[in-house]
Computed example of a mutant assay.
Amino acid sequence: MARKARAWTAVDTEAVRHILRLRDADVRHLSLRAIGTATGISHGRIGDLFNFANGAPSLNEFVSLCLLFNRRPSQVMEEVMRTVESADGSELAALSSGSASDDDAVSERSPDSDEEVAKRALGRLMDLAAKHGDTEAEQEAYEELP
């Protein structure tokens, strides 16, 4: 668990507002518990997100909620960014004013497909879950057990 909640930005707030609009328009009228079961996010955390409480949404939470409501996360983010830019572009200007390294140069790279982004995100999650350490020594110790 994080020691300090992630601060909410205008983009975070608008993203959750957009997801709330998707939920309101959804014919299934899903409860927080049903959303939690479908996404793997606890219903308490979903309640926090929908009340703009505690930490800002993670990328996994955002993607899961978008997919639940049958929307591509990239499409939702485009709509969110247009809304935020039209309301107040100062936060976006602050985000983009930092010096970009070669790895961060978005304008020089071609946009990635949703599948490529999902594969990279899954790879990062798998890396976090992977066992790191001296697995060879552990295997040898296991084989020596009676």
Results as ranks from 00 to 15, higher is better:
M1Y: 04
M1N: 09
R3S: 13
K4F: 09
R6M: 14
R6T: 13
R6F: 09
A7G: 02
W8H: 09
A10L: 11
A10P: 09
D12L: 03
D12I: 06
T13A: 10
E14T: 10
A15K: 00
V16S: 00
R17V: 06
H18A: 13
I19G: 00
L20R: 15
R21S: 08
L22N: 01
R23H: 13
D24R: 09
D26Q: 03
V27A: 15
V27G: 07
R28V: 02
R28G: 01
L30P: 01
L32V: 08
R33L: 10
R33N: 12
A34W: 03
A34K: 13
G36K: 00
T37G: 08
T37N: 06
A38L: 11
T39K: 03
I41C: 08
S42Y: 05
H43K: 14
H43L: 05
I46P: 06
L49S: 06
F50Q: 14
N51H: 12
N51R: 15
F52P: 01
A53N: 07
A53W: 02
N54E: 15
A56W: 10
A56I: 11
A56G: 08
S58H: 07
E61L: 02
E61M: 04
E61Q: 13
F62P: 09
L65F: 05
L65Y: 04
L65C: 03
F69R: 01
N70S: 15
R71F: 10
R72K: 11
P73Y: 10
S74A: 14
V76Y: 01
E78L: 05
V80G: 00
M81D: 01
R82C: 07
T83N: 02
T83Q: 03
V84D: 02
V84Y: 01
V84A: 02
A87Q: 09
G89M: 09
E91F: 06
E91L: 02
E91G: 02
E91R: 02
S96V: 08
S96R: 07
S96Y: 07
S96F: 07
S97N: 11
G98C: 04
G98Q: 12
A100D: 10
S101L: 06
A105L: 15
R109C: 12
D112A: 15
D112F: 07
S113R: 05
S113V: 03
S113T: 15
S113F: 04
D114P: 04
D114T: 12
A118L: 11
A118Q: 12
A118T: 12
K119Q: 14
A121F: 12
L122R: 15
D127W: 04
D127G: 07
K131P: 04
E136V: 13
E136M: 10
E138A: 15
E138M: 14
E140V: 13
Y142S: 02
E143G: 00
E143T: 07
L145K: 14
P146D: 13
P146W: 07
P146T: 06
P146Y: 09
